[in-house]
Design a protein around this nucleic acid. Structure first.
Lengths: 124, 124
DNA sequence: TCTTCATATGAATATTATTTCATTTGTTAG
DNA sequence: CTAACAAATGAAATAATATTCATATGAAGA
């Protein structure tokens, strides 16, 4: 196995550590979309979507293809479904109870947001 | 499979998207270490190591255990080895050639750093 | 070619994350 | 209890990243 993970993995993970990009990936699980469609679906500016698609494509998380004037982006399902699966397994096994992964205060904030997940909190 | 990946995965991946934290994880592949040992091995301040261990532990990437005055951290091998394996597979398959993942200029910069990897570059 | 639509880019601004340093907390042995 | 060591915390300073807005590029049909 390759050494120097600290360097080699950095872009891989940092590309995935952004809500907009994760939202794009999630959307693309439903099938290919062009930039405008993504933009509308996520209710974000077109330029922002383009900016965020770029690192996703560079890392091989999505593929793209031009069709007439539009460019369609599709998910690299092989990598991404496996990754999401692993994430879910990990979260279930290692962050099973609310108390384990979140402080009480953070938990309450999460509940306000109506999000029942365990891992989306501020870091420190 | 759980919905709302954009929220649920964010902390998971952002915790992994930091060179110091990745270096800690890499070090811990060789076995448990206490904070001072990690600090020395990575040539980083003790407080910085502590700051970075915290999110790693909260996300379940490492475990910790006190032994006398020291606290030893160990890798969650189940998750991490699988994750690193997946990363390597992905990098080999989807970023096989230099041209595909890096611009020429970035490549040169990488070579200067004597790093032969494909994914560690600036994002935009 | 010219116009229109779709996407990409650049650069400034804003936001978020990291690092550092001083200090505190916690543990153990004397 | 106190001293000595180990680790954690807080907050200011710094650095990195994301967002926005204006503009540029590219494709296709008239």
């Amino acid at each position: 196995m390759k050494q120097n993970l600290s360097e080699t993995c950095h872009l891989f993970f940092s590309t995935l550590s952004n809500p907009t990009r994760l939202a794009i990936l999630e959307l693309l699980r439903n099938g290919p979309r062009n930039v405008s469609e993504i933009s509308e679906a996520l209710n974000q500016e077109q330029s922002m979507i383009s900016h965020n698609l770029k690192p996703l494509e560079r890392c091989g998380f999505v593929f793209s293809e031009r069709k007439k004037k539009q460019r369609f982006y599709s998910l690299n399902k092989e990598t991404m479904e496996q990754l999401f699966k692993m994430f879910n397994y990990h979260a279930k096994k290692f962050c099973p109870t609310e108390g384990k992964c979140l402080t009480t205060r953070e938990l309450q904030e999460q509940k306000k947001k109506n999000a029942s997940n365990l891992l989306y909190v501020n870091r420190y």
